[in-house]
Write a protein that binds this DNA or RNA. Structure first.
Lengths: 223, 223
DNA sequence: CGGTATCCCCGTCGATACTG
DNA sequence: CAGTATCGACGGGGATACCG
């Protein structure tokens, strides 16, 4: 689409940033994703063709730089890209406060686990390999069971049993865990809403500390 | 277009705000415009049908409220709307720093005068009616001459001679005055680039104080 | 002044398949 | 792993005219 035909810096910024998906890709980049397929996991409903277009556009705009060989590309934010953090933060804070309601279509177990895997508080967790299991009570059988496999230096999100025994199993409705992650409700309210944790007492007690919530969870709500 | 299918508050915010023109309308509302045709002057390239759609959407989202009788409607921001100011500010700051180049299509004398009329430093100006004239050296005859008519309690933007004598006449290239307004250059650089002011000495000296620049003019530039 | 109504085009996006 | 290629539909939005 053509530009706005305005010299206003807000308009010039939006000529780039109002394109569908663009700011979500930027969000993923700012969260630390650098590889194409890593970015895709953060925006699973975006087609690879469109992601490719957006990445090129962001390169052209100087927001990111493409690095590495053709077959192992990575994308890193430039100074200009890093300075989009205040924009993303302002949007996230506003969305948190003023759009609290989620439709069923906004819920996605894979995306939720993907977000959670980034925020795990590794230092508070056991040092050996640790597996956390999640069972969603209200999701179709085929995608109701998930595992976070915490290895020495990475975390995997699995939708198939990894074979190692889970130290805890969280049984919960998808919406309840999503709202907990977003900070719409707290841990106690989640338990009242049916969240259950199975496993040894020390692990059940530790879990709330292991799972960091969304960065926007602490945003104060209106009223 | 459908939503993003994400529970992330950034995604939920962008479902509303990534629609073309929406954030520019919000900008106008935050700058104090409340009436339909007043808003239009801030987004002249937007069709009235589309502005109408956007206003309804912003009402539905709780960003603004529609008030007054059918034939004299006004739109005022709610708390949610007011809290979009940090979003607009962050975008404006980023655009100012990282998209400094303007295309010819981004220049618009009417829009420039419309922006300037809002920022006039009335207290520093003469109390009686004051007329400021602008003559753009590089704009087609039909829209090269403009006037700001400062009355007791309002300011008019005119593209036809208002009939009252101007206290000063500014002769300048459209791009130069636009860059001055944006803070890309300062007053001295604008004069070196050809800006000339005609009128009594006291008015010529006062002018830089009368004309407030864009709120983003003070944003520090990279490097 | 404050909008609606209508029309139609073209670009965007989604879907799917495929490649080095 | 990191993308391209192709295609079709849809709907957003620009233009224009019109109404209360």
């Amino acid at each position: 689409m053509a530009g706005y035909g305005q010299f206003c810096p807000v308009a010039k910024a939006m000529e780039l940033l109002d394109e569908r998906w663009t700011l979500l890709v930027v969000r993923e980049l700012l969260m630390g994703s650098t590889r194409f397929n890593e970015l895709r996991r953060g925006v699973p409903r975006m087609s690879p063709a469109l992601l490719s277009r957006r990445l090129r556009r962001l390169c052209d705009a100087g927001v990111i730089e493409r690095r590495g060989p053709e077959n192992r590309a990575s994308y890193v934010v430039t100074d200009a890209g890093r300075e989009l953090l205040p924009v993303v933060e302002a949007l996230g804070r506003w969305g948190t406060r003023w759009i609290p309601e989620l439709g069923d279509a906004d819920l996605d177990p894979h995306l939720l686990l993907w977000d959670m895997h980034r925020g795990l508080n590794r230092t508070a967790m056991p040092h050996e390999r640790t597996v956390l299991a999640f069972e969603f009570t209200d999701v179709a059988r085929s995608s109701s069971r998930w595992w976070l496999v915490v290895n020495a230096d990475d975390v995997d999100v699995c939708d198939a049993d990894p074979g190692f025994e889970a130290i805890v199993t969280v049984t919960v409705g998808l919406r309840v865990l999503t709202r907990l992650w977003r900070g719409d409700i707290d841990w106690a309210a989640a338990q009242r809403a049916g969240l259950r944790v199975a496993g040894p007492a020390w692990a059940r007690r530790g879990l709330p500390d292991w799972l960091q919530m969304s960065p926007f969870a602490v945003v104060p709500r209106p009223g």
